[in-house]
């Protein structure tokens, strides 16, 4: 996670990029990582999420933990847009290596306040090279 100072309505706002590299459910790092990102957004910080490596599995649709008895937090990703986290990047190469396609992921959306609250897809698919630039931008 890297940050940058900017100014926003008098308060201090930093740019946070959360780099998610772990699969959900086998460990709960994904769940608690999502919680810290949402809390940061609730504090009006500028939050972006990037999913690479096994992190892309976090956004797989149709997750249902009822048969393993753990908490199903995958619905919480739907709250990202509500918390104004509108930059959610998924690396295409990581999907392909895992036999997944764009259509395998949850159809997350956000309402664009600059465009009459039109509902728009939240996930931005990026290449490895693009993700490298995104990580660099947050320096």
């Amino acid at each position: 996670m890297v940050t940058e100072d900017t100014n926003h309505e008098g308060g201090q706002v930093k740019k946070f990029l959360y780099l998610n590299r772990r699969a959900p459910h086998g460990t709960n790092y994904a769940q608690e990582g999502l919680e810290v990102a949402l809390i940061g957004a609730a504090f009006d910080q500028d939050v972006a999420m990037a999913y690479t490596d096994d992190g892309v599995f976090q956004l797989k649709k149709d997750q249902d933990t009822s048969d393993i008895g753990t908490k199903n937090f995958s619905a919480t990703y739907g709250a990202l847009g509500d918390y104004d986290v509108t930059r959610v990047y998924v690396e295409l190469e990581s999907l392909a290596r895992r036999g997944l396609t764009k259509e395998d992921l949850m159809p997350l959306v956000y309402e664009d306040e600059d465009d009459d609250w039109e509902e728009k897809p939240l996930i931005r698919f990026v290449s490895e090279a693009e993700l490298r630039d995104i990580i660099e931008e947050h320096e």
Binding site: F57, K61, S74
Partner: peptide, 14 residues
């Protein structure tokens, strides 16, 4: 293990 597949949203056809 089926319950772990279901938790991760992976259907049998995959």
């Amino acid at each position: 293990l089926g319950p772990d597949l279901k938790a991760r949203g992976i259907h049998d056809d995959r």
